[in-house]
Design a binder for these strands. Sequence first.
DNA 1: GCCGTTTTCGGCCCGACTGTTTTCAGTCG
Length: 591
Amino acid sequence: MENIEIVGVLGELADLLEIKGSNPFRIRAYRNAIQTINGLTQSLEGMIEDGEDLTDLPAVGKDIAGHIEELISTGGLSRLEEVAAEVPRTLAELVKLDGVGPKKVKKLWNELGVTTVDQLEEALEADRVVSLEGFGAKSAEKIRRSIEDYRKQVGRFLLSEAEVLIQPLLDHLGEIDGLDELEVAGSFRRRRETVGDLDLLACAVEGSEEAIMDRFVNFPSVDRVVSAGVTKGAVVLRSGLEVDLRIVPRESWGAALLYFTGSKEHSVALRTRAVRQGLRVNEWGVFRAPDGQDDEESTDDFGERLGGTEEEEAYRILGLEWIPPVLRENRGEIEAAEKGSLPSLVRLDDIRGDLQMHSMWSDGKASIEEMALRCRELGYDYLAMTDHSPNLAMVQGVTAEKAKLQWREIEKIQGRLEGITVFRSMEVDILKDGSLDMEEEILEGLDLVVISVHTLMDMAKTEMTDRVIEAMRHPRADILAHPTGRLLNRREPFALDVEAVLHAAAEFDVAVELNASPRRLDLSDVHVRRAKELGVKVVISTDAHEPRALGSMRFGVEQARRGWLEPGDVLNTMSVEAFRSWLGRRSESQA
DNA sequence: GCCGTTTTCGGCCCGACTGTTTTCAGTCG
C-alpha cells in the first residue's frame, strides 16, 4: 500500500473524529502523523519490510504505527470502521466546503439528517438551513456559493496559471501611495506545483490601510468580496482564484512574511520550538514570553519585543539560519538550519543545457535552428534535440531513416552556429514489454538516449514497474523522462513503484528527469529528493515544443530546490566537457 | 494520540473576521 493511500485513510479518520467531537489534540496528533508521512521519501511498506520501527518517526506513536501496520497487512482499518459506524463517512466530504467546519457539519447532520453535498443543497433550497440555530441567511448563501465552487473547481491552480492571474492585481495595487512592500506569500512563495488560494501581504504606511483595502476589493477582475476588514480581506477573482490580503505595519513585516509564507507545518514547528526557548512567535514579531502568564489578562501583552522587522532577524532570534521558502515544509529544514547545514540549492543560472525538446521533425512547432538559437540566448552551452520515436503515431515521429537525415541537418546547423553544442538525441518510447522503439543501429549513433512511457498507461503497477526497469536496463538508455506520466490537475501518475525505479536508476547509472513543464513537474519534489539520497542524477528539462516554452526551466529548478537538490545533483549543470564524459561513462568503465 | 532540558502526566500555536449573537462560537490560515 502506498503512503498516499495510508494518508488518505488516516485523514478520513481524523475528519470523522473531528465531526464526532473527539479531543482536538487527538485529531491534531493524526494530522501531525500525516504530515510526517507526506514528507517521507521512502514507503512505509518498505520500511516495515526492512524491520524499521515506525514509532521512531516523529509524531508516530504506538497507536498510529499499529494503524499503519494493520492497513498494510489487511488493507483495512478497524478503527475507521468503528468510527464510521457512528459517523457516516460521507460527512468527511462536507467539511471541505468553504465556511463549513466540523461543528456545522455535525449540526446539519444531527438536526437535518444531511450527510452528503447533494442533501445539503436540497436542504438549502428547502430553506431548512436558514432556520437552524447558529445559521442565518448569510451563512446559507455562503454555503450555497461554496457548493458551486466545490463543483466547479476540481483541482487547484497551476503555479504558472496563478502567476499570470495575480500579476495584474499586483500592478493595480502597486500604483497606490502608502504601500511600502507587497509580496505574494503562502504556497506561491514556496513555489508549490499547484496553489489553492493566494496570500497577499502588504506593508502599509500608517493610516493608508483603508485606501489599500479599498483598492483591493475594487480591482476590476474581482467577482465577489468574501470579507473586507481593516487589515484583512479576501476576494474571489472571476477566474475562481481566491486572493487574501493582509496589511501589516513596517515593524511586523518580517514576522508576518514568515507566518503567511508557511507552510502551516513549518510555522507550527517554529512556534513550538520558540515556546521551548521561552519565546513567542506570531505575525507581529518575536517576543520574550511574559512571566507568570498563568492568570487572566496577559492576552493583549505578547511580552518584550525582540524583533521581526525582517525574516532573517526572526530566524536569527530563534537561533536559525534564514530558511529559503521552498524548503519550509517541516521536512528537516529547521534542524538543518540550526546546525548550519542547509543545502546550497541549485539555481537557474547553474543550468548549462536543456536535454529534452522537440522540433518540427516530430510534434514541435519550430525548426532545430530556432530552438538552438533560443537556447543560446538563454545562455546555455548545449542542448539535446529529442524528437519522438515513431511509436507515437499521432506525432509522426522520427524513423530510423529520418534520424539519419536529421543528424545531417544538425551537422549543418552546428557548422554555422557558434557557442552552442547540439547533441543528437531522441525521446524513444518504452514499448509494452520494456523494449525500446528504435533500431539498435540508430541508438548506437545517438549522443544521448532519452526513454519514456507514452502509451498503455493503465498497466498494473508491477507490470509497469517491470516494463520501465527493463527499458532502463538497455545499455544505451541515459535518461528516464517524465517518470510517472502525471499531468497536474488532469491525469494522475500511472501506477509505478518509484522507489524500485530509483534503485534501478542507481544500479544502471541512468539519470531521471524532472520535467520542468509546469503541467508536469515530474518527478515530484519528494521523489527527486529521494533520487538525491540514492545518488541518482537528476536532469531538469523543459520538454519544450516551441522556443518560448524553453523558458519553463525556472519551474523545474524551483521544484528541484523544493527537493533539496544542489548543483552537483543535477546533470545539466555540468560543463559541456563534463557532460560529454558522462555520456561516455559506460565505455570508460568497460575499458 | 504524541511527547519529554517541565520526562509517564499534563500539556499541545494563535490571531482576525464573520455572522448571529448580546458576549461569542465557528472557521480559516
